[in-house]
C-alpha cells in the first residue's frame, strides 16, 4: 500500500502498529498482542500480550502483558482479523489443563527430531544440524 516503503524491510510494519498481531517465535511460542512499536531490526513492542498453546482442536491462553521481542527471534508476524477470530472452530480450555499435554507434545517432537537427525547423519550421509534444530 505504501509504495515508498519496501515491503522487504521492517518499514512494512507501519500499517501493523496499533493492530492486534500474532507473533510466532523461533522456539515455537505463539503470542498475540497489540503491536505498539518496532525498529529497523524488527524488534517489537507488544502490549496486552497473551500466549496461546494449541493441541488438536483446543487451545488455551495466558496473560503475559508487555513484551519487548528481539526481532531476530520472530518467525512470523501476522495481523489478527478481529471480525473472524471468533469464528475459528477451536475450543478454549484452562491453561493449567493444557500445559502438561503441550509440554509432552513438545518433548515427543524433540525426541522424534533427534531420532530423525541421528538416522540422517548415520545412515543417509547428511550433516548434523547446528544444534538449534528448529528448522529456521
Amino acid at each position: 500500500m505504501d509504495s515508498l516503503i519496501p515491503f522487504t524491510t521492517s518499514g512494512s510494519l507501519v500499517d501493523c502498529v496499533d493492530r492486534k498481531m500474532l507473533v510466532v517465535l523461533r522456539d515455537g511460542r505463539k503470542l498475540q498482542g497489540v503491536l505498539r512499536s518496532y525498529d529497523q531490526f524488527a524488534n517489537l513492542v507488544l502490549e496486552d500480550t497473551v500466549e496461546r498453546i494449541y493441541y488438536g482442536d483446543v487451545f488455551a491462553e495466558t496473560w503475559k502483558g508487555l513484551f519487548l521481542i528481539r526481532g531476530e527471534n520472530v518467525v512470523l508476524l501476522g495481523e489478527v482479523d478481529l471480525d473472524k477470530e471468533d469464528d475459528v472452530p477451536l475450543q478454549q480450555v484452562a491453561w493449567e489443563e493444557l500445559v502438561p499435554i503441550h509440554r509432552e507434545e513438545i518433548a515427543a517432537k524433540k525426541k522424534r527430531e533427534e531420532t530423525k537427525a541421528k538416522v540422517l547423519f548415520e545412515q543417509k550421509g547428511f550433516c548434523k544440524e547446528g544444534g538449534e534444530g528448529d528448522g529456521y
Binding site: L25, D48, G65, L66, F67, L68, R70
Partner: peptide, 15 residues
C-alpha cells in the same frame, strides 16, 4: 549480551 536475548517482559505500566 544483547544478542543472546529472545525477549524481555516489562511492567505493563511502562508504556
Amino acid at each position: 549480551r544483547g544478542s543472546t536475548i529472545k525477549y524481555l517482559r516489562v511492567p505493563d505500566t511502562l508504556l
